[in-house]
């Protein structure tokens, strides 16, 4: 008798499939509801859970892990900004995914626009191409090495602006600085870099 009861109690969750599926969803909705009321712990949990299900969604669509993490952070910030538009009576995941999709498209649009902006017609540069390639005194590696020798903040700014393709405004938002401060830091970094590269040349 005891054995039968044990078997039944173990079998129940597998049989009751819809409950198993809806459990994590209900969990998120309840947590978000508490978070909207000001529960910081619940909010942390919601954001962690959100990043857990958004990360694979982004990984499938973006190439680099760093890019995935960047867009994920943008999405979390957007969720934070728009949290008053969430209604606890509705499922949480479609709401979060709508924001995720919106931010991902925004990112891809900016990414491709940036690529197009920096595209140079080959015919425009073909006359200077021969000298430029052979006579440049700086190599990509030397510039990169010098960037790493800069103070940490300046190096991060240059890397984000020139390697990752962010604008000064986006960099400012990401690292929590003012846009003007980012521009000043970048300007100083260029000066230092120029000086060092000239010395090395």
């Amino acid at each position: 008798m005891v054995a039968i009861r044990l078997v039944l109690s173990q079998a129940k969750p597998d049989v009751d499939y819809p409950t198993e599926v809806s459990k994590p969803l209900l969990h998120l909705e309840a947590l978000m509801s508490q978070a909207l009321a000001g529960d910081k712990h619940a909010y942390t949990e919601v954001l962690r859970e959100t990043s857990r299900f958004i990360r694979p969604f982004l990984s499938k669509r973006l190439g680099h892990a760093a890019e995935v993490e960047d867009v994920l952070q943008e999405i979390l910030l957007s969720i934070h900004k728009a949290r008053h538009t969430y209604d606890a009576q509705r499922p949480y995941q479609p709401w979060a995914f709508a924001i995720a999709k919106f931010r991902l498209l925004d990112h891809l649009r900016a990414h491709y626009a940036n690529h197009l902006r920096h595209t140079v017609e080959l015919s425009e540069v073909e006359n200077t191409l021969v000298e430029a390639v052979t006579e440049s005194s700086f190599s990509y590696e030397s510039i990169r090495a010098e960037i790493h020798l800069l103070p940490e903040k300046q190096a991060t700014i240059l890397q984000m602006m020139h390697q990752d393709g962010y604008t000064a405004k986006e960099v400012a938002q990401k690292i929590g600085m003012k846009e003007s401060a980012v521009k000043v830091a970048a300007h100083r970094a260029y000066k230092i870099l120029r000086k060092r590269l000239d010395e090395n040349a």
Binding site: G38, E69, Q73, L76, R83, M160
Partner: peptide
Amino acid sequence: MLDTEKLIASMARDASPVT
């Protein structure tokens, strides 16, 4: 660059009740 966990922590700190 900010770590995602740090970002979550900082957002949770700012999470006041919302209308």
